[in-house]
């Protein structure tokens, strides 16, 4: 047995491996870059200094496991919600949405919890609805509604075309902020803001038919009959009159035709009746109004 000194072959092999992999990475750029761009465009750019954005980015390391982790965090937040633990619930909802912002359900349900449920908890914690002064209750409602709306604003960054976010915002303005307004003018402003949000919802792809109906209904309630009429007249021709209505074209092509349930929800006949009611209120003579 003899001993001699030479450079190990593994260095050469390692160099070749790294060089080939780097060359492969370069060669696959035309395939990889569009995929990367497509995936990147689906999520907003992380904000500098945002802890939740940094957390969300960090969760990339979990790959497909992050959705499952977020589910668990959300379930824990739900358990805290059942126990009316306000701070823990909010923290859980924020963490779940930071880990996996793609789940719309987390945002929508979380916003409902913040804006609608938690104000009741706070009122209860301060002595209950009979004890706490109405002004204080309205203040709590406004604070919680603002929290829920801010949460939904955050959701819009990740789901800018989701009609349900605008619907939820409209719902909070209509159901929570309008009654919590200081005066009639404020209440009316909340109604108009809700109507505007239903309108925004109706312009998103895949929006349900009833968004415009709800918009018109709120406009009418706020005394804006002409706008309400125009909205209904505009929407009526697109409403499905039957599940297999060929004139139906508002939803993306890839989506299935509306179900019977959906047609019922659209209620073309009901919309037509409202149009006629509004014509009366606007003083439009019979025969001069909308002709379907």
């Amino acid at each position: 047995m003899k001993f001699s000194l030479t450079l190990p072959r593994s260095f050469r092999t390692g160099t070749v491996v790294v060089a080939v992999l780097a060359a492969t990475g370069w060669a696959l750029r035309p395939l990889a870059e569009p995929i990367r761009e497509e995936l990147r465009s689906a999520e907003p750019a992380p904000r500098l200094g945002s802890l939740s954005d940094a957390l969300g980015q960090g969760m990339n390391v979990l790959g497909g496991l992050r959705a499952m982790l977020a589910d668990f965090i959300y379930l824990k937040a739900c358990l805290d919600w059942e126990d009316t633990r306000l701070d823990q619930t909010i923290a859980g909802l924020r963490l779940a949405t930071a880990v996996d912002p793609s789940s719309l359900y987390f945002w929508l349900n979380g916003a409902s919890m913040m804006a609608l449920d938690m104000s009741n908890w706070r009122v209860d914690a301060e002595g209950g609805a009979y004890k706490v002064p109405k002004a204080r209750q309205r203040q709590i409602d406004r604070e919680q509604a603002a929290l829920g709306l801010a949460f939904l604003e955050e959701a819009r960054r990740f789901h800018p075309r989701a009609p349900t976010i605008y619907e939820k915002m409209a719902f909070i303005h209509h159901i929570r902020l309008r009654p919590a307004a200081e005066d009639e003018a404020g209440a009316n402003a909340e109604l108009l803001r809700a109507a505007e949000l239903y309108h925004l919802a109706s312009t998103q792809p895949g929006a349900p038919f009833y968004d415009v109906r709800l918009q018109a209904s709120l406009l009418k309630e706020a005394g804006h009959f002409r706008e309400a009429y125009d909205a209904l007249v505009k929407i009526y021709p697109t409403l499905p009159k039957a599940p297999d209505d060929p004139g139906y074209a508002r939803r993306p092509i890839k989506n299935p035709p509306p179900s019977e349930n959906e047609v019922m929800a659209a209620q073309a006949g009901d919309v037509f009746g409202r149009i006629r009611d509004l014509e009366k209120q606007l003083g439009i003579a019979p025969g001069q109004g909308f002709q379907p």
Binding site: L21, A22, G25, L39, N60, D100, L104, P252
Partner: peptide
Amino acid sequence: ETLARVFPDFQFFNLADKVGTEAGLD
């Protein structure tokens, strides 16, 4: 960039986020 290109990007395989959404899987 060269170093970044040595390994494949496994984030490409996580299209599960799109499942069940309006946009759907491409």
